[in-house]
């Protein structure tokens, strides 16, 4: 497996009044070249922070450290801020959740794309205009609309335009932060299809940050599940979603309604994630986990790798049995 991105024990902490907040704690996973990886978890799990740390766009109060952050074999953690900035947008690109934060309301959309091409890609004005038209054609927007302002675009079109901007300089990796969350379901599907299609045609890798496991199931080859700042499970989408080995992933899949399947009873996970300034010792999910044992509450769980399906859980080898138990409401209700 050829890893385009290899994240090894990456941590991000913020200084806060109460001390350090460990938003991401020793996260490790790889993004193979030409794949779509879903980075999934609930609010505050660190998924957006992790994506931003890879992109190198972090507030000054954030401290990023780790064993390595290898992109095309180069350790990004060892680069100077200047070298880092040069990589951003040319090799790595970012699609934010709301396109309005990528687009400036006072400039025409075409001018904004041209700006990226000229300033960062060294295009001439004429070449930039031609490339902007090509990019709009790629994301399925009529090139006449390059002359319009962002507010004249619908939500789906704005998100397509921010995909166009992200792809302008032919990056190898696109980090997309909840790119379809704010969109209606039909538009969401259309934008995901544009992104998937371009990813396949251009041989890109995409990290899709989302809270929605059905979006992951639809669009991703691989999945990384985060909980309370840590990666708890990773593997192919099929392995992780159909045969989860971590109780949190089991909980997430059982809590999610499935429109195409039988109307099974949803299984809630009682409690809420821990505060990241004082995380519990041992496994961070232990306080909500119906399967937690003494060692789970005291020792950091072991990383169990079964042919590339990684679960960070002391009981991962019992996963098949735990999955059956986790599907029952009573199993989790006892935790409330």
């Amino acid at each position: 497996m050829d890893a385009l991105l290899d994240i090894r024990a990456l941590s991000v902490s913020y200084r806060a009044r109460s001390g350090a907040v460990h938003a991401v704690d020793r996260a490790s996973f790889t993004v193979p070249a030409g794949s779509v990886v879903g980075l999934v978890g609930e609010s505050g799990c660190g998924k957006t922070t992790l994506a931003r740390a890879v992109m190198g766009v972090m507030p000054a109060s954030a401290q990023v450290s780790g064993d390595a952050l290898l992109f095309q074999g180069v350790d990004l953690l060892k680069l100077s801020p200047r070298e880092r900035r040069r990589l951003a947008w040319t090799k790595l690109a970012f699609i934010p959740q709301t396109a309005m934060s990528a687009l400036d309301p006072v400039y025409r959309v075409g001018a904004q794309i041209a700006e990226v091409l000229v300033e960062r890609g060294g295009f001439s004005r004429t070449a930039a205009r031609a490339r902007a038209e090509e990019l709009f054609a790629m994301v399925g927007i009529d090139r006449a609309r390059l002359a319009e302002y962002p507010h004249q675009f619908s939500g789906g079109m704005r998100q397509r335009a921010s995909i166009a901007i992200a792809l302008a300089l032919e990056p190898a990796l696109v980090l997309a932060d909840e790119p379809v969350t704010a969109l209606d379901v039909i538009v969401q599907r259309q934008v995901l299809d544009v992104l998937k299609d371009l990813q396949a045609r251009l041989g890109l890798s995409v990290v899709l940050v989302t809270h929605d496991i059905s979006v992951v199931a639809y669009a991703c080859d691989r999945v990384v599940v985060m909980y309370a700042g840590r990666v708890v499970e990773s593997g192919t989408a099929e392995e992780v979603l159909e045969r989860p080995r971590h109780p949190y992933t089991m909980g997430l899949t059982n809590a999610f309604p499935d429109l195409a399947g039988a109307a099974h009873t949803l299984v809630p996970i009682a409690g809420h994630p821990p505060a990241l300034d004082y995380p519990p010792p041992g496994c961070r999910f232990a306080p909500r986990c119906p399967f937690a044992q003494e060692r789970c509450r005291t020792l950091d769980p072991s990383t169990e790798d079964a042919a590339g399906h990684v679960a960070v859980c002391w009981r991962a080898e019992e996963a098949e049995l735990l999955r059956i138990q986790a599907a029952r409401v009573e199993t989790w209700a006892a935790m409330g």
């Binding site: 379901v185 059905s214 992951v216």
Partner: peptide, 17 residues
């Protein structure tokens, strides 16, 4: 609308809407 709703399973229709 029904066809556009993604489901949490890898095996699902990806046909154009």
């Amino acid at each position: 609308l029904v066809a556009a709703v993604p489901v949490p399973r890898v095996a699902q229709s990806r046909a154009p809407l």
